[in-house]
């Protein structure tokens, strides 16, 4: 029960809070690019940043799969 309650708690000064803040920061950066017509953000920062982020998540998943396979073998 306490595990369940702990799992429902939001850590505002932790990863949850960071991800919420990150959303607003990203919206701010994109709004800046739109209203100030900034080419660098649209042409480089956003697409390359996004591609790096999704590749990172994909690698994180692959590392979990390999770790799981290794543990199973042992």
């Amino acid at each position: 029960m306490s595990n369940q309650k702990n799992s429902l708690e939001i850590s505002w000064i932790g990863l949850d809070g960071f991800l919420v803040a990150l959303y607003f920061v990203l919206v701010g950066i994109i709004c800046y690019a739109i209203f100030r017509h900034n080419d660098f953000i649209i042409q480089y920062l956003l697409p390359y940043g996004f591609m790096i982020a999704v590749t990172g998540i994909f690698i994180n998943y692959l590392s979990l799969v390999f770790k799981f396979a290794k543990t199973k073998k042992e």
Partner: peptide, 23 residues
């Protein structure tokens, strides 16, 4: 695998989606 993991996955998605949307 846990409510915490689901919440963080979705918050991460918002950050990805808002970038993907403008692209």
């Amino acid at each position: 695998d846990s409510p915490k993991s689901g919440r963080r996955a979705m918050l991460s998605c918002f950050c990805l989606w808002i970038c993907f949307d403008i692209i």
